[in-house]
Write a protein that binds this DNA or RNA. Structure first.
Lengths: 234, 234
DNA sequence: GGGTTTTGTTAACCACGTGTGAAACGTTTC
DNA sequence: GAAACGTTTCACACGTGGTTAACAAAACCC
């Protein structure tokens, strides 16, 4: 039997270290939080999971790391996020990027219990590997998207934006929300950026499916076929 | 679309109740924690999940309930356990009985975030905040409105005005009030603006439902079906 | 390091929502 | 029944907000 190695970013100290000891798994500490470091440290049989302390380094970087880990060819196990209380709101609409979270100040028992819980449950839970909405299929592992069977050649940002919209169908997002959730920064200047990316996406969706991304005037954009049938499915 | 109902055992008070409100799901409270009560309360389309306060009643009973819920023919959604800190150890080797847990003292934000997280990961679009009044349904996330099941195609201002009126049914607003509350500025000039928007709304509500917005002569407008019997229920 | 792709910005253009005034209509009052 | 008042309806002009294309900057790849 091999030893479980769990990725730990960016550090493994205090209660976090204790929790690892109690649980009996070995941490691999990637201090930089960069993907190449993560890959370099990886044991031959892969990581059993990941603990990312989003309270310990820039939140956006943490989110990006999650995204990258999810998209890797070799999937890492369950991702556990450590956050401060004030960061809870930032988790909204990002539910797919992590499998569990712990709110600081971090308690050893809780950390250990969650670690054990997720590691044990790993395998039973399939992380929704794909999105299907109105002819659009997005494979979250291969980074590929098809519309009505035709492969769309999307760039990174296009993919992320489309994914975000498609995972929350029918819901309207303001440009500011999109900027903060997809781009991950606080709106310096260009809200028009969103418009342009939407335009590019619509172009790649093709004439026929361009309407999948709808403009809600004075509000923002939403994904989804029109609910024009009178079934009132709000 | 149906409303998500989440089983709540054995009570739904304080932070737990708040978390349900924030998340926008409806609790079904089974005070006894017995399976027959759970079944009796079950909506036709089943539970979207379960919140079981193991700190609130005998721990073994809570575990038994979890087991029963898991083994039912009709599976309940994700099970979230509420525990006290000293109970953490008791969770070991029972990882398969629940999907998430929260450690007391219970924090509204954390509870809500976990609830949302699990419901979403279970593929459950958690229900949006909405307004329902006399056949009118307004979904505040999708910016859609339906009247008697038919989708109304509202513009921004129309939506905002209708929303304001519908959130305060039966209450009469002067044009000035509407201008300041909905438009947000201090009435330079056109009170006729309100009239016109009301007209457009009535048109989109359709012949049959136009009366939902009522004119109160020399005063203003109000939303609501007629209380034409003289029961004076104001 | 040069070329290519991706990403963000700026500005012109266009469409649609919105507000306005005036006329038609209805209701109340003398 | 006519005058006074309030509401509804209509047509039109203006401006906000969205789309589009072209450009600049940055990242990426040999």
């Amino acid at each position: 039997m091999t030893i479980d190695v769990v990725l730990c970013v960016p550090s493994c100290e205090g209660p976090i270290k204790k929790a690892f000891e109690v649980t009996g798994v070995t941490p691999a500490v990637a201090a930089s939080g960069r993907l190449n470091e993560v890959t370099a440290l990886e044991p031959t049989d892969g990581y059993a999971g990941a603990v990312i302390n989003a309270a310990g380094f820039p939140f956006n970087d943490a989110m990006n790391l999650c995204r990258q880990l999810r998209h890797r060819d070799r999937p890492v196990g369950p991702i556990i996020l450590l956050v401060d209380h004030y960061q809870l709101d930032d988790l909204t609409f990002r539910e797919d990027l992590f499998d569990d979270f712990v709110v600081g100040p971090f308690d050893v028992s809780e950390l250990a219990t969650r670690l054990r819980h997720r590691l044990r449950r790993a395998g039973n839970e399939s992380v929704a590997p794909r999105i299907e909405q109105g002819g659009l299929v997005m494979n979250l592992e291969t980074y590929q998207a098809t519309i009505a069977g035709r492969v769309m050649d999307l760039t990174y940002m296009e993919y992320e934006l489309l994914r975000f919209l498609a995972t929350n169908p029918q819901r309207v997002f303001t440009r500011e929300t999109l900027l903060s959730r997809v781009w991950g920064y606080e709106y310096y200047g260009g809200a028009r950026t969103v418009d342009v990316h939407v335009r590019r996406l619509r172009a790649k969706l093709g004439e026929e499916h361009a309407h999948l991304i709808q403009t809600v005037r004075s509000v923002g954009y939403k994904f989804g076929a029109d609910a024009e049938r009178g079934d009132g499915d709000l």
